[in-house]
Design a protein around this nucleic acid. Structure first.
Lengths: 335, 335
DNA sequence: ATGAAAGCGCTAACAA
DNA sequence: TTGTTAGCGCTTTCAT
């Protein structure tokens, strides 16, 4: 590996001159510039970024904390983060924490030693420590797709309330008035927000919120199935589930009970998961633009790194309703 | 940020002594060791990895080239790579090439400047240049889940032939003798190998390979459907598709034609994709252990980096047959 | 317009 | 056992 000195020698200039040429940081006569360029080519010289970082004190490196509980979600965020980082000449260090606090703190330590200039946390809640620690270390941090109570840190979230509203409004617009809701595990903000949107859409349509029509699920197909069994007794004409898997469970239950989707009961899910397109009928659902979450998070982080933005900001990315076969107008016989 | 000098001053020792303590690289009296440890704690000292890399000439960094054509595949590999890397104190730089050669070479350049100690390529074939370039740069490289002709480089592949064999053998064992095969796009080695396994299983069972029973698909649901339409005329009792999506298309076609799966026709897919569990009946399929591919690739790379292994090796990871509802014994009426 | 030299934070050979 | 010192490859101030 040749160094800047080798290039300098070959071009018969001082190392500093090579540096000036390579970074365009000073006026250099065209002739010497050419000599340097030629020497660089002949030696296949590639500058040593480690040495450069050492001097300049910035590494152009950011850390990305992910978990592997949901593969495709993590990758989608990572893709968005890398997209923005790459364009700004940053690179992303991939950290799969498994949602284990032990591992999370080990990664944090490694990242800190590496002098990363910022960290994006897209793993689920683990150590509260992490947050305060990074704050004390003055390392810029942005949470992606993770709600962080308190206003002292930037986070990029999905607008689940608007998504829940859109899903429910869609059903209302189709003439439904008796619309069930299957929630995720209690305490999950994603589900809570979707439910809030559901209730808001009902309010707007002057449909009273019936607590009986709201059932607790836990994001699994089975839990959706069970919740639907209970809901069926109340004869809703439509159901909105807080995620696709529960919606699929609901559809299974409806079909096995002898009803049709969407003719008898419409079903809407959430997530626009792969499986939502493979069931029959394909699910009407709400798409969560995770790459965009990653992009926005990276943009905020880079702004904080460069000092362009000092105050933490909280951004919500819009979700899009995807209408497919599982939702339709309320049937006349029941309307 | 405090430096090693600050710690040295506070502990009233020389910087080198601090270094010795921190790296356990020399005998130090317990007393001074404690003084150093205490100073480190009080100052919240974290060593600067950039400076350390500068001296030691190793960065403990590897690059991972991925593409986003199939999210979950890429993430699965990345997870495996990171698992092994993390345990060896390495970190992984995430590079999403989009399978664009332009971007790939930009990443290569960035990684080279960063002095990464090795690169794992899990993106699809793009620039032939990349390979020869990295070779010339003496940067260790391992291909993951990507076939690389020539023996001059390590690669970790999935044993698709054994997988295809297992899938077909499973059908043979169930009594089937007229087994169709739906291939992927011609030229894709993954499909070719699966087909080879299919043919081998037939040979072993002394079932002649009937070219009519082999149909060209292109890995999409629709192509599986179309291929099945043609196959149906030949009345096979079972079909093995080179991936799950085509298998799902085949099932759709079979059911719409009035036959039942698996009672009339058994179907086996490949990939163990999410959707394979969401169709009815759930697909019998072949699981591709991509995290393991990533792990093995990382292990080989680290071996090459440390000089433990010099000769390129080619490893094939075993796939596992997952038996679900879409395959069953050949029906008596037809047998 | 170019060169000389200091120094980023650390490690390691050598000295004491 | 501990300290002194040189130097990794680069950038940048200051001098020429």
């Amino acid at each position: 590996m040749s160094t800047i000195k080798d290039v300098a020698k070959k071009a018969r200039v001082a190392p500093s001159t090579v540096s000036y040429v390579l970074t365009n940081s000073k006026k250099i006569t065209e002739e010497t510039r050419q000599r340097v360029i030629r020497a660089v080519k002949e030696l296949n010289y590639v500058p040593n970024g480690v040495a450069r970082s050492m001097k300049s004190r910035n590494t152009y490196l950011i850390g990305l904390l992910l978990s592997d509980v949901a593969h495709h979600l993590s990758f989608a965020i990572a893709k968005g983060v890398d997209e923005v980082a790459f364009k700004a000449n940053y690179n992303v260090i991939f950290c799969n924490t498994h949602n284990e606090s032990e591992r999370e703190s080990q990664y944090i330590r490694l990242l800190e030693e590496r002098q990363v200039q910022g960290i994006i946390v897209a793993s689920r809640r683990t150590e509260e420590l992490t947050h305060t620690y990074l704050k004390s270390r003055q390392i810029p941090i942005v949470y992606a797709n993770r709600y962080e109570p308190g206003e002292s840190v930037s986070c990029v979230l999905v607008d689940n309330e608007a998504g829940g509203y859109a899903a429910t409004k869609h059903l209302v617009d189709l003439g439904h008035r008796k619309i069930g809701f299957i929630s995720g595990p209690s305490g999950r903000s994603s589900s809570r927000d979707r439910q809030r949107g559901y209730e808001q859409a009902l309010h707007e349509a002057r449909i009273p919120v019936d607590r009986e029509l709201i059932r607790l699920g836990e994001y699994s197909v089975e839990s959706g199935y069970k919740a639907m069994q209970q809901l069926l007794e109340l004869r809703p004409t439509a159901v909105f589930a807080a995620n696709d898997n529960m919606a699929i469970g609901a559809v299974n239950c409806i079909v096995e009970s002898g009803w049709r989707v969407p003719e008898d009961i419409s079903v809407v899910g959430y997530d626009n998961s792969i499986q939502s397109t493979f069931v029959h009928p394909a699910l009407t659902t709400v798409d969560v633009p995770l790459p965009q979450v990653g992009e926005v998070a990276a943009r905020i982080l880079l702004d904080e790194i460069s000092g362009r933005s000092a105050t933490p900001q909280s951004i919500r990315v819009k979700c899009n309703l995807i209408v497919r076969g599982s939702s339709g107008p309320v049937s006349q016989s029941k309307g």
